[in-house]
């Protein structure tokens, strides 16, 4: 069963299956210009902060995710998989793309 992921910045919600990374679900929204990068946890462009909900992760580069980031659930969306409904905030390079209206991109 897919979970519902809510982007608090924009109020947009999307469905994301447990086997699907948060980035795959986000990408399916089709927002133009989302910097989907390597999708392997290496490049760091898809950073988000999980505000609420359960999830599991796969390895991601510590160049982009510090211990402090892990403690505050600031993670790379391509390596986070939902175990329940989630809410998240977009941070870093991704934020300007997701939260900027189409007209001024």
């Amino acid at each position: 069963m897919p979970h519902t992921v809510r982007i608090e910045d924009t109020g947009v919600s999307y469905a994301c299956a447990p086997r699907e990374s948060l980035l795959e679900g986000l990408h399916r929204l089709g927002l133009r210009g989302i910097p989907v990068g390597c999708r392997g946890g290496g490049c760091g462009v898809c950073k988000i902060e999980v505000l609420a909900g359960e999830f599991h992760t796969r390895a991601m580069s510590r160049d982009h995710v510090s211990d402090d980031d892990v403690a505050h659930q600031r993670l790379l969306a391509c390596r986070v998989y939902p175990s329940s409904d989630l809410s998240l905030k977009v941070i870093g390079k991704l934020q300007t793309k997701v939260c900027t209206p189409l007209a001024i991109r």
């Binding site: 990068g37 290496g42 390895a59």
Partner: peptide, 8 residues
């Protein structure tokens, strides 16, 4: 393309 760790 990228390898599974994000090395292009």
């Amino acid at each position: 393309a990228w390898d599974p760790s994000g090395n292009r």
